[in-house]
Amino acid sequence: MVTFQNTQVLLLALVLLVACLAKLTIRERVADAPDHVHGVPVPAGLARLTALRHSRGLNVGLGVGEGVLGLALLVTSQFSVRLATTLAFAAATWVVGELRVRRPDAGCGCFGGLSAKRVGRRSVARALLFTGAGIASLGAPMAGLDVLRDERTQVGPVLILELALFAALSPELPELLDRRSRARGLGRPETPCERRRSPVAETYATLFDSAAWVEHENAVTSAVPLDVWREGCWRFVVYPASVEGRDQEVVFAVSTAERGRTVRAALVPAPVTTTV
């Protein structure tokens, strides 16, 4: 029983430190909080509360508070620290339960920007279990670091089991994995060519490196293009040209795709200009 109680101290310290880190480092996007729920405008009072929860100052304050509690659980076995932790988780359970009923679309923000998805039963169950863990930890005799140092306490199996349960009840985990894979460029969805912002320098680099450019390069009579414009997946570059003494224009169509860009070219007669 004592081992179980000691394990709860470690678990709660770990959770509080992770929550602190997430709140301080991962910001929530403002647009993630909708102003309508199921097509109905959010009442002004609730909207103000949601705006308050999204305030950076409040999030930093909460994160720092959680960090202090987590560190205190690790270094001291004071009853007041355990009680404060239990009360904090009880309050969090109430808040998450209320959010689930009143603002399900707004996310709970429990782990900063990772908790932007709608509050579900899993989030409420998780907060409830942490409150239970807090109650169990009230009678734990050791501080968190002492539990880790003491070789006689066999906290490993219980802690691993609880962490697995914590992971299973956390909708933030897929979001975290998704962000990590995006940051490394793994699995990042490709922007469709018609919507991709393609700098004109990239177009020129692709063009000058293409076989179409090599074919028509000698016909081009000016380094400055006559016209450069874009339609969908293609950017068009028009140069003045001269072929066998006749004035022509060479039109290059350069793909705006992220990868595998192609270039096409055509020669057209130059328009007749009249001088007045």
């Binding site: 393609s198 414009w229 339609e231 969908g232 570059v237």
Partner: peptide
């Protein structure tokens, strides 16, 4: 809303991309 700001496209630099997935066009499209 989605006029290309590069080259002679005629778009505004820094314009938002809109809330619909628009293909880029240019003045005259």
């Amino acid at each position: 809303p989605a006029v290309d700001p590069e080259g002679d496209g005629g778009g505004c630099a820094g314009a938002p991309s809109g809330c619909v997935a628009f293909p880029f066009l240019s003045i005259g499209s």
